[in-house]
Amino acid sequence: MSVASSIPGLSTGTVTLVRREILRYVRRPRNTFLPPFINNVLYFAVFGVILGERIGSYGDAIPYILFVLPGLVVLGAVSNGFENASFSIFHGRWNEYIHEVLTSPLSYGQTTFAYVAASTLRGVLVGVIIAVVGVAFTVAHPAYDLVSIAHPLYLAVALTLVAALFACIGVVGGLWARDFDYLTVLNQFLIRPLVFFGGVFYPLDALDGLFYTLSFLNPMVFTVDAVRYGFLDVNVLNPWLSLGVLAGATAVVFAIDVALVKRGYGLTE
């Protein structure tokens, strides 16, 4: 039963854990995909259509519904990537069935990768659902044209990195949490403020000097700007810089995740 033969590429063990993690949320669409769908129907109806017609952006070159669409896609991808990783790990710890994984011959890197990969996929899927909802609202509106994607490949990479970064942060949250309240605290006091001040609902250059500068401490700014560039070809920051920051941040947080899992933080004591 040597494990050495299964190390190259994605091993059977890694694939099994990724599959288990994906099945967990795919089989519960009412808990995982329906809430963001309904939320975003409401967002697009209120911010996109009802308020959007009264809000100008980018000198009215882009309708507000289109401006807000990439931001909402990022919001969905971020919160679902984060929530999936943190919940799945914490729930496994709470009920101790994460022991099934911990007592297996998966390496610490493989274990972390599986949680991050499955959570990233959920973030991307929710992002796609939100994009479809947004496009449906846009197409249905008599005043707007059909949406096109300016840089599809860039968008795919950026959205994946966005979801992956917050899935990696979610792993830290899932390991750190001591009860379910901790997860709520993270969502309310970390993720939500980052999102709201990350340029989802307003263009970054709408801020004054100091707040504009401070915004760059918020990773969400890079994520929203990158995804908006991918969709609409409008950006405040250099899109390659945004992609680089996202990739670097994801790599750093993933490395922290692996180190924490290896140390057994939240898992073995």
Partner: peptide
């Protein structure tokens, strides 16, 4: 799943 984690094919 447990078998899979130990490298046993599906």
């Amino acid at each position: 799943h447990k078998a899979g984690y130990h490298g046993i094919p599906p």
